[in-house]
């Protein structure tokens, strides 16, 4: 395990060195202002999955390092969620009717090298939904939604599904950056959009978008698919397994 992560870091380091050389070699004719590399665009949720980190590294072409900033946004697919408020009735807490909130990301992370409010303007953050405060949820009901939105963000933050880390991007040297984005253990399957914004003096110089795919590994995926696509057969197989288990235990205890 340690060995593996060591190798990983080594590869990243080599990559970074490579980047810097190419940049030095062609100091003035660099066309791209931002070059990005993802460590592993395919992530597998195995049966022993306990979270993973997504390594993002790259190089930017900065004029003045003190004014250069990097923001990384990772966003999972949007989904709809139902929110029910608990109300006390007859002495116990029961669920009230639900409010449906759409356009909630299944995963959302903002990593930057400093507070995003100081990197760029509020308008830009709002427009690009950068920052937990700027996520645009959609709801059919108007009343009480600010509270509900706050609650959604709070809960997802606690579970590590929404992350905002203003120290998450490390600038190495004068043109390299590196971030390790945490993916929690209960992450959903699907494609994740990774957008990297490069700012110079509060202005967007370049952006780069790539995609990461998170899949369940064969066994888990197979069980999930069978359970949902052939539910009757799946149920019968579950029962057959139980019968075999029960009968073999009975057989064993007889043998003694």
């Amino acid at each position: 395990m340690y060995y593996y992560s060591f190798i990983k870091t080594l590869i990243v380091a080599l990559f970074c060195v490579g980047f810097s050389f190419t940049n030095y070699a062609s100091a003035n004719e660099v066309e791209a202002d931002l070059v990005v590399q993802l460590d592993d665009p395919h992530i597998q949720i195995g049966s022993n999955f306990f979270g993973e980190e997504l390594l993002i590294f790259g190089a930017f072409n900065s004029g003045d390092l003190s004014k250069s900033d990097i923001i990384i946004k990772v966003r999972g697919t949007s989904k709809s969620i139902s929110v029910r408020e608990k109300v006390k009735k007859y002495g116990i807490w029961v669920n009230s009717d639900d409010t449906i909130i759409d356009n909630v990301p299944s995963y959302y992370a903002i990593y930057s090298n400093r507070n995003i409010q100081r990197i760029t303007t509020q308008d830009f953050l709002k427009e690009n939904q950068i920052g937990l405060g700027y996520l645009k949820f959609v709801s059919n009901e108007k009343n009480q939604t600010p509270n509900i939105y706050k609650e959604i963000i709070k809960k997802n933050k606690e579970e590590g599904i929404f992350i905002e880390r203003y120290t998450g991007v490390r600038i190495v040297g004068d043109k390299l950056f590196r971030a390790s984005v945490q993916l929690p253990k209960d992450i959903n399957e699907g494609s994740y959009d990774v957008t990297i914004y490069f700012f110079d003096d509060q202005k967007l110089v370049d952006r780069d978008t790539s995609r990461v795919f998170v899949n369940k590994t064969l066994a888990g995926k197979y069980i999930y698919t069978q359970a949902n696509e052939r539910p009757l057969l799946y149920g019968i197989i579950c029962v057959v397994i139980a019968w075999i288990a029960g009968l073999s235990v009975a057989g064993l205890s007889r043998a003694r």
Binding site: I81, S82, V83, R84, K86, N95, I100, K155
Partner: peptide, 12 residues
Amino acid sequence: AKPQNIYVIADV
């Protein structure tokens, strides 16, 4: 007991 989370959030 008063629940820690007043809102119950679930996927649709």
